[in-house]
Design a protein around this nucleic acid. Structure first.
Lengths: 321, 321
DNA sequence: CTCCTTATGCTCATATTGAGCATTTATAGG
DNA sequence: CCTATAAATGCTCAATATGAGCATAAGGAG
């Protein structure tokens, strides 16, 4: 056990794969029961860089090679450690976590080490707009947030709170911005609508139903950061292909993209833009689909990265439900 | 002195202001002579969050309040510490730096603590395309990079190196992407064209002229990260206003934006887009300019943040020299 | 009073987007 | 073999957004 005042640097990985259409996240069990993100200590003596350290313990623990890896953010607020103590075996020390986003096309093998793949929308039900606005927003979130805004001390604060919730959740005619995943989570935390918020202040009362599954420590915040980053990134870098199999149909690519951004896309326009981007090329082979005309199998053209200026996939929103 | 094996977490701030038109950076002297970024240790006992810690020592050391602050990246590669030892008084310990970008409109007072404002292009001459392609690219960088590519062991590696330099520097007809500041710096470091690269491997031979001023430790890399981030961010968030004075002319705003992105903008189109964005409003007051028709003074409409979906300034490139 | 300089206004041709309609090509069931 | 269905693809059209440039307006300096 390490005494208080000490500083521990850990690495947390949000490992994302995709199972046909749902975005999947590698979760490991934690002592408390709430799922956690894979966590590994950073050892300054043996790890030359963070990324090397990360790849090393992931491949050790989960028997699993990471492909694309990107640093997200470093989390170090006081108060993170208590819930982590059990998980990391460090008691009282300040724990800093460097969060990483990792993408892999490899979802087949349920990885070793007790990890399981979990649909990320299980933790963020309000983020999935693929089949329209999630009911929990109108039923639970919006009313609770408005109540919270009304309770503010001064008229000025009330206005500030109202602005904040309108921007975060696209209420009152403002448009929903799918990239504000972290803003929304932090707002819900502050208002006390997610389990972690109550747990962290010792309140054992349950939150309303539909607010998603809690995670250990501040891992849900880290996941929110990862989703925000990934949703932004698909639009300016062809990262989706890091989680696609070698060959895929355009519909599959669309389903995966939709799963990431969280809203339905206009099929024809998605294809038109994809076509212009030059990111994919047909293989001539067909997929033996279920029902309907067979689709051609495409593959990612890595060369495209060298050609144009770096851009990602267009995500033409499909309006109307 | 702290023994090796220990881990120190520090905070580095890239503090940016703008002096009429040049982007300015707060630099402090380091023991070696090369300028450094302000650095402060992170104390887990007293700092509740990184950001609080950062603001605290900056205001203490530089007598100076930070406005906008954003975490950039956490740097921890082995080998950073040697050059830092002198600067931080820690010898042999592994030093991790959490880099922050801070913006302030306050450039007037040369801050306390020995810091000075420095034009950031002094460290990155090849990044300033405001008056056309910097001569050093064709004269020094491109030939050296091509030589490096030709020296690669296998044809495959040669091609990979060629691709890399073409993408990074927009050679051979590829377009220059102003956001790849970090890619370019890392490439130059790898090739040994910047002083830091040679210093870090004990080579005392000078680099070619025109490759910019070196900084302490890996601070130039941190600065490159900051510039990359800021160049990307101005396009999707109205962050420029964080370094503008309360009132400004549209030309001034344009000059500052140009200074950040590093290329000239098409004036009329810049204004048209700005106008549509609703970010600014005229104040009716005029600036007593030097030469030419007086310009109206504008101010940032903070309310605009609440209105549309979050976007930044359009940066319509002005083509032709 | 004229020229120079910078601020502003406007126009036009060309992409890019957002929405939908129309065809083509399999599979499943009489 | 013929027909209804389900997808995959192809195309069209109007509404915007973007890239370039011409034209005017308004001070200050000879």
């Amino acid at each position: 056990m390490i005494g208080s005042g000490a500083l521990i640097v850990g690495l947390n990985a949000v490992i994302v794969a995709v199972d046909e259409d749902a975005p999947q996240l590698l979760a490991v069990p934690s002592g408390e029961g709430a799922p956690a993100l894979p966590f590994g200590p950073f050892d300054p003596k043996t790890h030359r860089t963070f990324e090397i350290g990360l790849r090393e313990w992931v491949s050790e623990q989960a028997q699993f090679q990471l492909g694309y890896v990107e640093q997200l953010y470093t989390f170090g607020d006081m108060g993170r450690e208590a819930p982590l103590a059990e998980l990391t075996g460090t008691d009282g020390a300040r724990v800093i976590s460097i969060g990483y986003l990792a993408l892999t096309p490899d979802t087949s093998n349920p990885p070793e080490g007790g990890g399981v793949w979990r649909d990320w929308y299980r933790f963020f039900p309000w983020e999935d707009w693929r089949i329209g606005e999630p009911a929990v927003i109108a039923a639970v979130i919006a009313p609770a947030l408005r109540r919270w805004a009304d309770e503010a001390g001064s008229p000025g604060k009330r206005e500030a709170r109202r602005d904040r919730l309108r921007i975060a959740f696209g209420l009152d005619g403002m448009t929903w911005n799918e990239e504000r995943v972290l803003d929304r989570y932090e707002l819900l935390y502050e208002v006390g609508l997610v389990t972690e918020a109550r747990r962290d202040r010792g309140d054992r009362e349950a939150v309303p139903a539909g607010m998603g599954e809690a995670m250990a420590s501040d891992h849900r915040r880290i996941l929110a950061t990862a989703i925000s980053r990934l949703r932004a990134k698909v639009k300016y870098r062809p990262v989706v292909f890091e989680i696609m199999p070698e060959r895929f149909t355009l519909s599959h690519l669309q389903r995966v993209t939709e799963a990431i951004v969280g809203y339905p896309l206009h099929k024809q326009n998605f294809r038109r833009a994809l076509d212009r981007s030059g990111f994919v090329e047909g293989t001539g082979r067909m997929e033996a689909r279920t029902g309907g005309r067979p689709a051609e199998l495409f593959r990612f053209r890595r060369e495209a990265l060298r050609e144009g200026p770096a851009s990602g996939l267009a995500t033409p929103r499909l309006n109307q439900g």
